[in-house]
Amino acid sequence: MNGEAPFVPDERDRALMLATQEGLPLAVRPYHALAERLGWAPEEVFARLARLHAVGVIRRIAAAPNHYALGYVANGMSVWDVDDERVDELGQWLAAQGEVSHCYRRPRALPLWRYNLFAMFHARERAEVERAVAVAAVRLAACFPGAVRAHEVLFSSRILKKTGVRLDF
């Protein structure tokens, strides 16, 4: 988490975000349609969206694609039990691999869960993910001897929910 003070959305920011959380109106003038829905002037919608975007509360306005539909049917969460002293070095290294979409350091939950580094791999086939993770494991062992104690890949076999963030204001 970064050290910046959080941006606290005011009531109108919240109303605007709630009005878009199911999605942007698919109209020729989507922001005008949004303004109309809210009963606001379009200028206010533009100004508030620009500000929320500038401060990072809105990351981007874009499509959330279904990985499966785009052919990325193999989604593997690789998890690594890494020496705590070196986990950041390894995390940065893993994040730079082409197939990796997210890479995080997380706490272990011993004795049930020994892993402290998580990297999501996406590919069109399961074998491709397995290969990419195996290549990463070999390279990590060579570049950081002894730092990785164990790893495994958890494949997703079903999407149970994928609505994205709903704001619980």
Partner: peptide
């Protein structure tokens, strides 16, 4: 194919 189109919060 797209599950949602809009702002990412």
């Amino acid at each position: 194919i797209v599950t949602r189109f809009g702002p990412f919060f």
